[in-house]
């Protein structure tokens, strides 16, 4: 066992982990932040996407110990004072979720996408979200939601 320390949603946290402990396990099991989901566990579906030092990453394909000293943001860290993040609000407004399982990862990827492509067209959104899979096939409204959020809500 080793001790890992990082900042998660603005708070300093630490815990004892094995070498093989994944970042997503640390978030869900040590910190009880279960908003980050494990869908495929093979880095294909994107349900586990979080931000590490500002970039979207698949937390099922990163060791907890690799995040030593990192600044991590999960879906729980987006809403401020009970107010949804504009991307969450856009998903709500556009019915950008059906069962909701992929939603945390979709929202985290979408925020990174808009940060790097401030005015994305539909093709760019679809291409940049190719690492996130929605088994309800609700892509149409997800793309609409990202467009709305990119246009300032």
């Amino acid at each position: 066992m080793a001790t890992v320390s990082m900042t998660v949603n603005g708070q300093a946290v630490s815990g004892d982990v094995e070498g093989r402990t994944l970042l997503v396990q640390f978030l869900r099991e040590n910190l009880n932040l279960t908003g980050t989901h494990v869908g495929c566990d093979t880095s294909q579906c994107g349900a586990c996407v979080v931000h590490v030092n500002g970039d979207s990453m698949k937390s099922c394909t990163m060791l907890a110990l690799e995040a030593e000293g990192a600044d991590v943001t999960t879906i729980e860290g987006l809403a401020k004072g009970g107010e949804l993040h504009p991307m969450q609000q856009a998903f709500k407004d556009n019915h950008g979720l059906q069962c909701g399982f992929c939603t945390p990862g979709m929202v985290m990827s979408a925020i990174d996408l808009v940060a790097k492509n401030p005015n994305p067209d539909e093709a760019t959104i679809r291409e940049q979200l190719e690492g996130n899979i929605c088994r309800c096939t609700g892509y149409h409204n997800i793309v609409k939601a990202v467009q709305q959020a990119a246009q300032g809500g």
Binding site: V49, S56, K58, M62, E130, G131
Partner: peptide
């Protein structure tokens, strides 16, 4: 290569 998240890492 891969997808955006894979390219970030």
């Amino acid at each position: 290569i891969g997808d955006a998240q894979v390219r970030n890492r």
